[in-house]
Structures are given as C-alpha cells and as structure tokens.
C-alpha cells in the first residue's frame, strides 16, 4: 500500500501519578511530563515495521491539539515516520470530533490502513478508532495483538475477554492496537536531529469545516475512594485465621 496513517495523542506520561485539583475542576496537567499515548506508540511501531518489510511506502503521523503536540509528532518522526500533520486547536476535542477530523485527513491522504491506539490513557474512552471506522464505512479491528497483511486483506488477532479472536478485513481499514502487538523502539539521538528536517504540516481545525458535535460535559472531578492498608500476618496460620474471621474460608 502507499500510505499508513497513525494517530498520536499527547497525554500525561504513563509513569506520572495524576492529581485531581483541590477545587475539583480537573486533573493537574501543569508542569507534568507529557508523552505519546503508549498505545499510539505501539501503533506507530507497527506501521514502521510494515514499511520496513516493504508493504507500505509512507507512514504519516497525525495529532489533534495545540502547538505543544508538535513535540510528540517530532518524536514520531524520530521513530521513523515520514511526515506529520498537526490539526491545531486549543480546545480538547471529544472522540466523535476527533474521528471526524481523522476522517477528513483520511479523505485527503487515502491511506490503505489507519493504525490507532485502542484507548488514550488520559480519558480511557476507547472510542475514536471505532467511530472513525463507522463514519468511514470501513472495517474495524480493535484490540489487535497480531496484524498480518495479505494483499488487499488484513488478518488481525484481537485480544478479547474470552481469548484470541481472528478476523479478516478488507482494506482500507482501521486497526486499534493492544499492548502485546509489539514493543516500540527507542529513539536514537541522530534520528532526533534528522526528524527536525522532516515535514510537519499544521492545519487549523477551523479550516477542516468539521461538523460540530454535542459534547459530554465534565462537571466535576474527584479522587476515587481509597482502600486502606489492612493488617499484616506472620505466617500461613495467621492468614488462614484472618480469612476465617472474615467468613471467607
């Protein structure tokens, strides 16, 4: 195929323990380390491997967000993507709007495959890939742990609750990635330098004429109920006694 399109979302880094602002207005993101959503990094790695096998000519990374997201796109270019597109907006887009934006980019670029993370680790929505596939009228293969291309087909192994499911989809299609699809490569310093010369196109969101969607409003943020530290026992006899006390044995 000619092109693979990969979505990269800028999110609070995987290792950061997020804090809810004391006034409940949101989650603290000021001064917090930001990274590519880990599932999106897996999506990009898969696209790069497909290209390196000779099954795709170009890998395009796309992000939606403010100009800070250029940083994650540059990282994607350093990993090996050929060019980047930033759809610029200062507001956080909802999943349906993100899917509509991605569809617009799909209609401009005509990729043979769109690879997205199965969910972003900030809002944990797990929606955008399925929505894009629906609006595009194309197949979706979500939660992929194996992807094999065969001409105009993709055979995808999906991680589902009862085991591993294999499906076959016609291309073009949307594939969303699960954790075990691959292990993303590390970026090397010379590649970071080279990435600075790769094209990064910025398109204001307003230019795309995306249909407005009614947002789900976020009214208040709170901490989850915390579990308390319980008791420590010294040996198996103590454990058995404690379980019997609770009526669990």
């Amino acid at each position: 195929m000619e092109k693979i399109l990969v979505g990269l979302k800028r999110v609070v880094d995987y290792n950061v323990r997020v804090r809810v602002r004391s006034d409940g207005s949101g989650v603290e993101t000021d001064g917090v380390k930001m990274s590519i959503n880990p599932f999106d990094e897996i999506a990009l790695e898969e696209a790069l491997r497909i290209k390196e096998r000779g099954d795709a000519a170009e890998v395009i990374v796309v992000s939606i967000g403010n100009s800070d997201a250029r940083q994650q796109l540059r990282t994607g270019l350093a990993m090996g993507a050929d060019r980047a597109i930033l759809v610029e907006t200062d507001e956080e887009t909802d999943p349906l709007s993100s899917a509509r934006v991605l569809l617009e980019i799909v209609n401009r670029e005509h990729p043979g495959l769109v690879l997205l993370g199965k969910q972003a680790i900030d809002n944990d929505n797990n929606q955008t890939g399925q929505m894009l596939a629906a609006l595009w009228g194309r197949p979706q293969a979500t939660f992929a742990s194996e992807l094999v291309l065969d001409g105009n087909l993709a055979k995808v192994t999906r991680e589902i609750d009862v085991g591993l499911e294999s499906i076959e989809v016609d291309l073009p299609a949307v594939v969303t990635t699960d954790l075990r699809l691959n292990e993303p490569r590390y970026v090397k310093l010379p590649d970071i330098m080279k990435a600075k010369k790769k094209p990064l196109e910025q398109i204001p969101l307003a230019e795309l004429n995306i249909e407005a969607s009614a947002r789900i409003s976020e009214i208040a943020f709170a901490l989850p109920e915390q579990r308390q530290k319980g008791i420590m026992v010294d040996d198996v006899a103590g454990l058995v006694a404690a379980l019997q006390d609770k009526g669990l044995l």
């Binding site: 323990r17 997020v18 680790i121 789900i216 976020e218 009214i219 943020f221 989850p224």
Partner: peptide, 15 residues
C-alpha cells in the same frame, strides 16, 4: 466514570 486508570472520577452530563 473513571479516568486516568481510575485515579480520578469524573461526573459527566450528556447533552
């Protein structure tokens, strides 16, 4: 609903 792997709980209202 939970967000951030359950580290925050958000109250949401659908339109």
């Amino acid at each position: 609903r939970p967000i951030y792997a359950g580290n925050a709980i958000v109250t949401v209202e659908a339109p």
